[in-house]
Write a protein that binds this DNA or RNA. Structure first.
Lengths: 235, 235
DNA sequence: CTAAGTTAGTTGGACTGTACAACTAAGTAT
DNA sequence: ATACTTAGTTGTACAGTCCAACTAACTTAG
């Protein structure tokens, strides 16, 4: 196509990466995969976010590509998948100018317990980091994902997507506290959550270690909801 | 590089587009450029968002590329530039699988009044659309940009970046009202704005058509600020 | 020069939702 | 039976919005 010179411009490498969060063992965890040890690969053996090249032949669009990569590593489709942003520069990949489209997904604990790919493993999020060193600029992407998750929690009910199909209000509050890494006020949390209209009570009660507690589930309409204030804890 | 087969995968076309907003003539406007009329181009003569291919040789990263395209069309550098998201699919560009990294910028009126590129022109945003038909999926991107702008206004003081260096509170409120396309409550707006700690009074007063009004300017620390409620108007 | 009009900014009461502590109720453990 | 734990409620204080009415300072029309 000599009359369309820009089509012959060198094109950046294009990838999609997914930051997959779940609450496991009472902690916020993220799924990482270990890069192949082959010397021909960049960052051999280093932990990285799940992701990889866009398949022009197979992927209809970016989100389909993200869903594919999520399913490859976890075997499930996330109930919540949101675009996080994109990172592109001349230096982030040693193979050349590259751009990645990053997504972030929330997985309920029961879905996160399934069969993982052999090279995948859960890691606790500590602060806004993770223990192992990450390949490429994935530490920066993870940082942005944790910040986005935390900031959205302040004015939406996003963490509800981290819950199993049925849950109690104290369980939901515990999930919020894990994500935000700070204690929340009980009665304000309850007022907000019920006003937010994202969850609805189900008929059954849970027989906990103490008195039976009301079970709730996510409503079908899943739009994150605006909150008024930021229920700060006592003290 | 025969041992790195993925490097020889066909790569998507990669572009950067910028949604540039300004308040002009008491309305929210967006900058569009008319695509060249050459028959070899897709969408010849159609209006589109400013943008184009990433220059692997010249652009350090995606944001630098966005700044370059902004400057090319307006001659200025925006005081506010934020990544909006990315759109990529097999069908959005007739030339093949393509992905664009979209940014959105806010320009103060005085900066938006400068010398535009010959192919560029301001258009009023009506609802969440613009009068002319747009090339590619740019209507969808513009829609997302307007929604992002409006939704962020509910809990940040973003529109302050659309103001000239010094402005009065009623002028700022008018800008908010134009962006949100609804009237706001005067005293609540004032309380919030001052509490938000994004603006500070300057010594001078403006001699308006009536009594002198206090001038404010943006503070150096420019972090958008969380707001509590959503000051609804009377009625 | 005066009167009417316009706009900046303030004040006060009704209302809503958070902060916080104290309370009740219903189960469990010893 | 008694003590402990946890789910959920209640009540008071407080902050910020909603709304209308008000004051103050300037402009404009007659």
């Amino acid at each position: 196509m000599p009359e369309r010179p820009e089509l012959d411009f060198p094109r950046p490498l294009t990838t999609v990466d997914v930051v997959i969060f779940a609450i496991r063992s009472d902690a916020l965890q993220v799924l990482l995969v270990q890069r192949p040890r082959a010397e021909t690969e960049p960052f051999p053996g280093v932990w990285a976010l799940p992701g990889g090249f866009v398949d022009i032949a197979g992927d209809r669009d970016l989100e389909a590509c993200a869903v594919r990569k999520l399913k490859d590593k976890t075997g499930v489709v996330s109930p919540y998948l949101e675009q996080l942003g994109s990172w592109g520069s001349a230096t982030r990949d040693p193979r050349g100018w590259s751009a990645t489209h990053a997504y972030f997904a929330l997985l309920p604990e029961h879905a996160a317990g399934g069969a993982l790919a052999a090279d995948a493993q859960w890691f606790a999020v500590e602060g806004e980091k993770v223990r192992p060193k990450l390949a490429f600029d994935h530490a920066e992407i993870l940082h942005a994902a944790v910040q986005r998750l935390r900031s959205k929690v302040e004015y939406t009910s996003l963490p509800a997507y981290l819950m199993p199909p049925e849950f109690t209000l104290p369980e939901l509050q515990r999930t919020f506290e894990i994500v935000l890494d700070r204690p929340l006020e009980k009665s304000a949390f309850r007022t907000r959550m019920l006003a937010a209209d994202l969850i609805e009570p189900v008929a059954r009660m849970r027989k906990g270690p103490n008195r039976p507690a009301q079970l709730y589930r996510l409503k079908k309409a899943r739009a994150p909801v605006f909150f008024a204030r930021t229920f700060n804890p006592p003290g």
